[in-house]
């Protein structure tokens, strides 16, 4: 994350590719074998990305050829019935509900924690909080899922006296905890990227530290903060194991947070195991994957754009 900030600094040695540096003339290929090999290997991530797009779309294509696109946005998901119904609206809304619920909790707490770490906390406290966030981010999603299933769901079931503890609410709470480190650490990066001169100017004209944070630093960092929130949203939307284990997975259309829901990710994970390779149902699940990929990448790209805007705006 900080690598971006170093961009453009001290690039004299690496970027220089002039042949005069290397003295005696040799065959171009032998001389620059390192360049050729590194160039090829460095495209690994682009190739990986290409494979993802190609194969998800290739496996989704047979579905779109046999079933009209609007069917995907209808209300009934009964893929094994004859004739099958492929209405993914309950899952799309399920993902949206759980993600929105998670953000309601994690955005205020994440941003406030980021402001505390970046602007208020003194030296060692700051390190403790930053490490805690890093550790929270590193806990595997299946552990969060198990915690939700074994601890949180029974707790919510008995406190709210629900028929089942596996509800959209349980998923939202677990996702909130999972999105929290993303939002907090990226928001902290954004606040830190605001030049110190802004704060100094504000303090010099007599503002308190809080007024400086609220009226100067936060507005100056706003696009980076927005980027952090959107990335947290993308993370929550794409999360699979935790929601699969705690939301109950009922593909019913519901607006209630206290009922079981099924998300896009959980739908794919749950049904792929029971589907014959190459069936229409199999291709339908890949089309859900394509939809999920589209949504999360849209979020990620816009988040990167907002985060980049912060850096561009304050650079001199």
């Amino acid at each position: 994350m900080t690598a971006q900030g170093l961009n453009g600094k001290g690039c004299s040695a690496g970027a220089d590719d002039s042949p005069s540096l290397h003295g005696l003339p040799r065959s171009l290929f032998r001389k620059r074998l390192d360049v050729v090999i590194l160039f090829i290997l460095s495209s690994a991530s682009l190739i990986a990305l290409g494979l993802i797009f190609f194969f998800i779309l290739r496996e989704a294509f047979p579905f779109f050829r046999r079933v009209p696109l609007v069917e995907l946005f209808s209300r009934t998901w009964l893929p094994t019935l004859e004739p099958p119904r492929f209405g993914a609206l309950p899952m799309i809304l399920g993902s949206a509900t759980v993600t929105a619920g998670a953000l309601i909790v994690s955005v205020p707490i994440g941003l406030a924690a980021a402001a505390f770490i970046a602007e208020v906390a003194p030296g060692i406290t700051k390190d403790v909080f930053k490490s805690a966030i890093e550790i929270l981010a590193s806990i595997p999603s299946v552990v969060y899922g198990f915690f939700g299933l074994a601890v949180l769901a029974p707790f919510l079931q008995s406190t709210l006296s629900l028929p089942t503890g596996r509800t959209a609410l349980t998923g939202a709470v677990i996702l909130a905890v999972m999105a929290l480190p993303t939002i907090a650490s990226l928001a902290e990066d954004a606040l830190t990227a605001v030049p110190a001169s802004y704060r100094e100017a504000s303090l010099a004209v007599g503002a308190t530290r809080w007024q400086t944070i609220w009226r100067v630093t936060v507005p100056a960092a706003s696009s980076g903060l927005l980027g952090a929130v959107i990335l947290g949203m993308g993370r929550a939307m794409g999360e699979t194991m935790a929601v699969l284990m705690v939301t109950g997975n009922s593909p019913q259309l519901t607006a209630s947070l206290l009922k079981p829901v099924r998300t896009l990710t959980a739908g794919i994970a749950l049904e792929m195991a029971e589907t014959p390779f190459g069936s229409l149902h199999y291709h339908a699940l890949f089309s859900l994957g394509a939809l999920l990929l589209l949504i999360t990448l849209g979020m990620n790209w816009s988040a990167e754009w907002f985060r980049g805007r912060l850096v561009r705006r304050h650079r001199r």
């Binding site: 998800i56 990335l231 993308g234 939307m237 990448l297 990167e304």
Partner: peptide, 18 residues
């Protein structure tokens, strides 16, 4: 950056298909 944002279940789908 894009690869880092791809949901893990989509990697699973790629693995299955490819």
């Amino acid at each position: 950056n894009t690869l880092a944002g791809v949901p893990s279940i989509v990697f699973g789908l790629l693995g299955l298909a490819f």
